[in-house]
Design a protein around this nucleic acid. Structure first.
Lengths: 199, 199
DNA sequence: ACCTGAACACCGTTCAAGT
DNA sequence: ACCTGAACACCGTTCAAGT
């Protein structure tokens, strides 16, 4: 009678939790719905009640990843300091995430994933919005086009560095150095002057 | 008697060719060894004579991708012009490749792929070497650490932009604008002054 | 609403056997 | 050396049936 209600009401959460572990340990390829069901102690058909197919589960996983990364970025933006310090903190959050959850990072930023219409692009959009906020208020004077370009370039650079580190082509320390170099370079650029109102 | 010797001597090449098409059209997930064998008109066990397992075929595919990208980068470096023009050309080659072969690009730069020891990291290394050459001769005076940092940052930025475009989060035109902004920013940076001998 | 369990079609991989 | 074809274990997905 003391058996925890493993599969009553929270099967979805249990499956996602287990899936996150499997992905971290063995990569996305190592993840099977049947194995997940086995781990959760339910029949192999049960996951179907919560996810239309395997890709739907992967999408949900990616969304959770974006939410976690967004939270980490938000935390980083709370750092005391000027734009340079805060951007650096954001960039490090990216790198740390990429290292601790390399396979999930891949899943989140893969071309495949965002081919779909639904929730994954939305979650990615939220992350982007936070980055936008980090650039300070949009005053009418700033060049909106430059602002978008700057934001995209920042995101692309961070993701590129993160991917580099995640793929072990370089290590965490070098990743941090890259992050520092990138923020320094970008913040000292002419583009930034046009994009961001305050300094 | 006029039947082409489809599966005599060049099965390996045929399989890789077919695989490249499938990956482009349906992504890596849509690729199965048995289907490939079917397309080549051989039994499902035949591919085993050329590839130890599915991952070995994917690795070979990634290597071919790196070779093609390396060739494109080499071509771009042949462009007439100063460092700025040539870097921009390289960056555009990256973006074009990412658009035309988004799934292959993913495969090449995925964390998973480079976990392996063998030929994939080597092919990636060759691409890196070409980028290094693009920065001009190493004269003793330049800061080697700055040079490595600059090179990595350039590669990371290009790959980040390429990934952004490949995932359709932005379009080709915006990708080109990002490339221009990135090269301009990086070439005008203090890091570049320390990293590259000539201007 | 959620889960079970049989069924189906498809895989990757192994391996003895052929040529 | 290269390919065939049976065999095995494992999948994703569907669906009628249970509660």
């Amino acid at each position: 009678m003391n058996e925890r209600p493993f599969h009553h009401g929270n099967l979805r959460a249990v499956l996602l939790d287990e899936a996150a572990t499997v992905v971290r340990e063995t990569g996305v390829d190592g993840l099977s719905l049947r194995d997940l069901a086995r781990r959760a102690g339910v029949s192999h058909g049960a996951p179907r009640s919560h996810f239309a197919d395997r890709q739907a589960l992967l999408d949900a996983l990616a969304v959770l990843g974006f939410e976690r990364l967004t939270a980490a970025v938000r935390r980083a933006l709370g750092t005391e300091g000027d734009l340079s310090v805060r951007f650096r903190a954001v960039a490090r959050a990216y790198v740390d995430f990429a290292i601790d959850d390399a396979a999930l990072m891949d899943l989140m930023f893969q071309a495949k994933t965002s081919g779909r219409a639904g929730s994954v692009p939305a979650a990615a959009g939220t992350l982007f919005g936070v980055l936008d906020d980090a650039m300070g208020p949009r005053v009418g004077a700033v060049d909106q086009e430059a602002r978008d370009l700057f934001k995209l370039l920042f995101a692309a650079t961070m993701q590129g560095i993160a991917a580099l580190v995640a793929s072990r082509r370089t290590d965490r320390e070098q990743g941090y150095r890259l992050v520092d170099a990138a923020t320094e370079t970008m913040l000292g650029s002419e583009l930034r002057e046009r994009a961001v109102s305050d300094a």
